[in-house]
Amino acid sequence: MRAAIFAEYGDPSVLKVVETGLPEPGLGQVRVAVRAAGVNPIDVKVRSGSMSGGRPPTRPRSLGSEVSGVVDAVGDGVADVAVGDAVAGWPVGGGYAEYALMSVYAAKPDALTWKQAAVLPVAGEAALRSLRSLRPGRGETLLINGASGAVGALATQIAMGDGVTVIGTAGAANLDRVRALGAAATVYGPGLAGRVRELAPQGVDAVLDAAGHGALPDAIALRGGVDRVVTIADPAAFELGVPFLSGGSKDQTAEVLRTLLEAAAQGRITPPAAHGMALDQVVQAHEQVEKGGAGKIVLLP
């Protein structure tokens, strides 16, 4: 099969599409013929080596932490899906390939395209994890910094579906996108706290920072402390005493996938719009993600 791998850290050019062996599913795993694989900022960080601690990679590896595809083979102990079923989830060992292994997956609803299903696992899990931490309730006001991005937009829709009032920040060019979700919108940047107070004179009950941009001091000022303030984007959190929510395998469950996929299929949330690129364009895909502003990108093997 063809897969995009890298053997050294560096700029996008270290990614090479090569022929490699077909992976065999182990206990509890399925192999899928990949139809779409999401490209995320975390992939760029791993490829660049910024998360390596200065240690070189020990072997060539693939990237990609969310895929949709058709079950091609099943390992021992798998009874909930069969060959030919459409699924989406988190791949084991990378998803930038024609085939990938998965241990955590859920059925892809017919109402969703391959691209729509592939872009939900990473951003959707982060949105749900953040909202579980903050617990905004009906009638409360939630400030989401970066509401036009993939995580922020999904969190906005999920929270509003639960009766939460949302104020979303974005760049000036994306404010209409936030308003289209039904949230009040304002630009991020200097003076944010004052602009939010004008929109919510009663105050905000919780703050989710999904974008960074130095918004945490304003968030703390609005809350009068760090209570019910979280970030998934700003490492300044460690100095300011704000929880930095980084997910892990324990957060990646089939239940989370089913919740997201069913909500999207029923129209309660809209998956991030995605631009498809061929596997051979993986270098260009990473270049676009690094530049920012390209929106969500999926590889189509």
Rank of each mutant, 00 (worst) to 15 (best):
V256D: 11
P235K: 06
D218M: 03
H213R: 14
E239S: 11
I232K: 02
D218S: 15
D251S: 14
G241D: 06
L216P: 05
G212Y: 06
G225Y: 05
A264R: 02
Q266N: 15
L257C: 11
E262M: 10
A206V: 07
R228I: 07
F244V: 00
D218G: 13
A237R: 04
V207D: 01
V226L: 06
G224V: 09
H213I: 00
A236Q: 12
F244D: 00
R197F: 02
T259R: 13
A233Y: 12
L257F: 09
V207L: 03
G247K: 04
G248I: 10
A206Q: 06
D205C: 09
L261D: 02
L199H: 01
H213F: 12
L222Y: 06
R228Y: 02
A210C: 11
A211F: 11
A264C: 09
P217A: 04
G241I: 03
E198F: 00
R197T: 13
Q202L: 12
S249K: 14
G247T: 14
G214C: 08
A265Y: 11
Q252G: 03
V204N: 03
F244Q: 01
S249Q: 14
L245W: 02
E198H: 07
V242K: 01
V204Q: 08
D251W: 04
R195N: 06
G225T: 05
G267K: 04
P201K: 11
K250H: 13
G241K: 04
G248A: 09
P217S: 01
L260D: 07
Q202K: 14
T231P: 08
V229S: 03
L222N: 09
A264I: 08
E262H: 12
D205W: 08
E262C: 04
A236W: 00
V242I: 06
R223L: 08
T253W: 10
D205Y: 07
E239M: 04
A211S: 15
L199Y: 07
G194E: 15
A233V: 12
G225N: 10
R195K: 13
L216D: 03
L208N: 04
A265E: 10
R195V: 08
A265W: 09
A236Y: 01
V196S: 03
V256N: 13
V229N: 00
Q202E: 14
Q202G: 14
L260Q: 09
P217L: 04
D251Y: 08
Q266R: 15
R258H: 13
D234F: 09
V207K: 04
P243V: 02
E198A: 15
G203Y: 02
I232V: 15
A206W: 01
T253R: 08
A211Y: 07
E239G: 13
D227V: 11
L199W: 09
A200P: 10
V226Q: 09
G247I: 09
